[in-house]
């Protein structure tokens, strides 16, 4: 349901549309599958038109698992609505956030085991 593309050594998960309690289990599954494959991960939120606490929880869980596995993790292209919800939860200060995948790649290489 949510496409995953490879770019610059990262898996990039593209979340789209309305990420609510109906869809967030799938988002969580895709995010955790990428991390279990030991891939550094970026999550593209540019096409997210709505996200609720269950969607945010999937991102938080992904971030926590990535830290345990010492894998790089970030959010890219965060849509205005998604950013508003991250801000409400004060998680915009917690997640590594980048304007785009290219912006992340400019910074440095992904961290790997």
């Amino acid at each position: 349901m949510y496409p995953v593309k490879e770019n610059g050594g990262y898996s990039v998960v593209h979340l789209t549309g309305e990420v609510d309690l109906n869809c967030s289990p799938e988002a969580r599954r895709v995010i955790l599958d990428c991390l279990r494959s030991n891939n550094p991960l970026l999550i593209d939120l540019s096409a997210v038109t709505y996200i609720d606490s269950s969607g945010i929880a999937s991102l938080v869980e992904g971030y926590q698992v990535s830290r345990k596995l010492n894998l790089d993790f970030g959010l890219v292209g965060v849509s205005d609505r998604a950013m508003s919800v991250l801000h409400l939860a004060r998680l915009d200060q917690v997640f590594p956030i980048f304007a785009s995948v290219e912006e992340r790649l400019k910074r440095d290489l992904p961290r790997e085991e």
Binding site: S53, S54, A57, V60, Q64, L88, A89, V94
Partner: peptide, 18 residues
């Protein structure tokens, strides 16, 4: 609590904030 960065428990916080 916002100091508790955990996957759950945000929904009630959102309701009260909004």
């Amino acid at each position: 609590s916002l100091d508790d960065i955990s996957p759950g428990g945000l929904g009630v916080y959102f309701i009260h904030q909004i």
